[in-house]
Amino acid sequence: MQAALDKMGQRVTDAGYIADQALLTSLWLMSELNRPLLLEGNAGVGKTEVGKILADVFDRSLIRLQCYEGLDVNTAVYEWNYQRQLLAIRRQEILHEDGLSEAQLFSETYLMKRPLLQSISGVQPTVLLIDEIDRADEEFEAYLLEVLSDFQISIPELGTIKASSIPLVILTSNGTRELSDALRRRCLYHYIDYPDYDKELRIVLARAPDIGANLAAQIVAFVQKLREQDLRKVPGVAETLDWTAALLRLDMKSLGDNPDAVVATLGCLLKTREDIDAMPAEVIHDLVARAS
């Protein structure tokens, strides 16, 4: 198993994602036990990224379903292509052709596959990323539970479609709503926390290799300090990377050289007016001094 884990770790790292052993174990387990993996954690800690990386590592195509309030079967599973059906009917009328039975009208030709159906009906197994499941309604969650346990989808007009391949399923949640126990039980669970200094430094260096080790260390130290402040929206890793890119553009060599540029680019890290107001220039300068 360790060999498999190491191999996977290597591929994940090659794909540009820094994962700890615990996450690797979870990923390995989900492929081994064929169970979905539920990822929780604050915004911007790289939950969605895991799905993309997984597709890379297993060399599968990624199918993503972004959840939102009011998401229904028609957008998540399948829909009939009405326009095409109507056209077919008219065409038959005009040309006086025979033989367009209802069974043909409701065949796969006129079926539009949405992410869930796509993910189980492909020849090649896929990675299915169900993003922000907590935003979907409870009804959809219940439906999803059925799909995830049996890997089959019933379409009234067509019958039951069984999975031709079982996808690897990743669910992410921000915790805007408590998920049902049933869904939680169905899934393996992993909680991604904000990375500590070392891990974040490795992430920054992996994602922005051009940045000097010195500046990278300062950036990470600054962001780590910033997270300790009383903020409404705590910056995640995504924000750190944004900010790194911004500083790279500005040709910064060290945060201490130009603290005003730090203040000017703070919009990459702080995303609400209240947070920006709460961090006046003096505080920022102080943080910069402590980070460098």
Partner: peptide, 19 residues
Amino acid sequence: RRQLRMGLKALICSSVSDW
């Protein structure tokens, strides 16, 4: 033990507080 711990953790936990 470490592998067993991480494996069981993913398997048995279902929320942050469990984690």
